[in-house]
């Protein structure tokens, strides 16, 4: 039961990371390897601002989200935008480069030791069969709120509708006069923001190392593919499935094999349902 509760919390963060991944993947058509290290950056910025600069945790988190979103936008403008007419696979390779650059900078600034936020006392709240901490509740509420907001943006706002049009039929978008450049900028902004929030939350739940996000990347990929690339709700649902599967597996096998579970799910999806569960709706 406790494993299931943990699974839901981990799943929420995997889902958020997958949401950021799926947005860019659908519009730019490549899986952004730097996604994991973006999570790490957000977590360390929060750490640096709260523990280092002695800001209270909430303003520190907000600033970290803003800073990470800007960093992602900067990465887009300098690393990815110049490759807009190149084969997609070059963007994939460039994203490896971005990942390594972020990781190196994080390690150089904050070192490679295990760190954690200086959070107020973590009181666990008992709910009968299992207990949850305040952090867990904050994570769940934030994720649900954010998913609602993203959903509204994608399906109700003009920018979101244009974004989905570009993702579905790029040629059609060109014909109907959508400004692709603006759509791409917006996509990276939204993806960066979502990823940044996921990173801040991740740092609250798990200790910080420079490999914090990298270690979550495989689960995020699996969740994205499971929920069909380009389906925001699929990514979230996929995240919960992954989180639950990984945490529940720890009841039976060693927790070190969590990532192997994510790989098995990824392989099974590709084998039986390569376009994911939600494709073709």
């Amino acid at each position: 039961m406790q494993a299931a509760a943990d699974g839901v919390v981990v799943g929420a963060m995997v889902g958020l990371a997958a949401l950021g991944l799926t947005l860019v993947w659908a519009v730019e058509r490549f899986p952004n390897i730097a996604q994991g290290d973006t999570l790490t950056l957000a977590a360390y910025l929060t750490f640096g601002l709260s523990v280092g600069a002695q800001l209270p945790i909430v303003p520190a988190a907000v600033l970290a989200v803003g800073g990470t979103t800007l960093a992602v936008q900067a990465a887009y403008q300098t690393a990815f935008r110049p490759l807009r007419t190149s084969p997609r696979v070059t963007l994939l390779v460039a994203s490896i480069g971005v990942a390594l650059v972020i990781r190196a900078i994080v390690s150089l600034v904050w070192g490679t030791r295990l760190q954690s936020y200086d959070l107020p006392v973590r009181r666990a709240i008992s709910l009968g069969l299992f207990h949850v901490s305040l952090v867990d509740i904050v994570i769940l509420v934030t994720v649900l709120g954010l998913v609602g907001a993203v959903y509204w943006i994608l399906y109700r706002s003009r920018a979101g509708i244009e974004m989905r049009a570009v993702a579905d039929v790029p040629d059609l978008a060109r014909v109907t006069g959508i400004d692709t450049r603006r759509v791409l900028r917006f996509t990276w902004l939204l993806s960066g923001f979502v990823t940044a929030v996921a990173g801040v939350l991740l740092g609250a739940k798990i200790g910080l190392t420079p490999l914090l996000g990298w270690n979550l990347l495989l689960a995020a990929f699996a969740a994205t593919v499971l929920g069909s690339v380009g389906h925001p709700l699929g990514a979230i649902a996929g995240g919960f499935v992954l989180g639950l599967a990984m945490e529940l597996s720890t009841v039976f096998i060693s927790p070190t094999f969590k990532e192997a579970i994510a790989f098995v799910i990824l392989a099974a999806v590709l084998l039986f349902r390569p376009r994911g569960l939600l494709a073709g709706r």
Binding site: P82, A94, I96, G97, A99, R103, A104
Partner: peptide
């Protein structure tokens, strides 16, 4: 030494980005 390891990573990352853009 460990900072050197990070600097090497930084160089690899930057090179990958620049090579993709300039000299694929």
């Amino acid at each position: 030494q460990s900072d050197f390891a990070q600097l090497r990573l930084l160089v690899i990352g930057l090179l990958l980005i620049v090579l993709m853009q300039r000299k694929r």
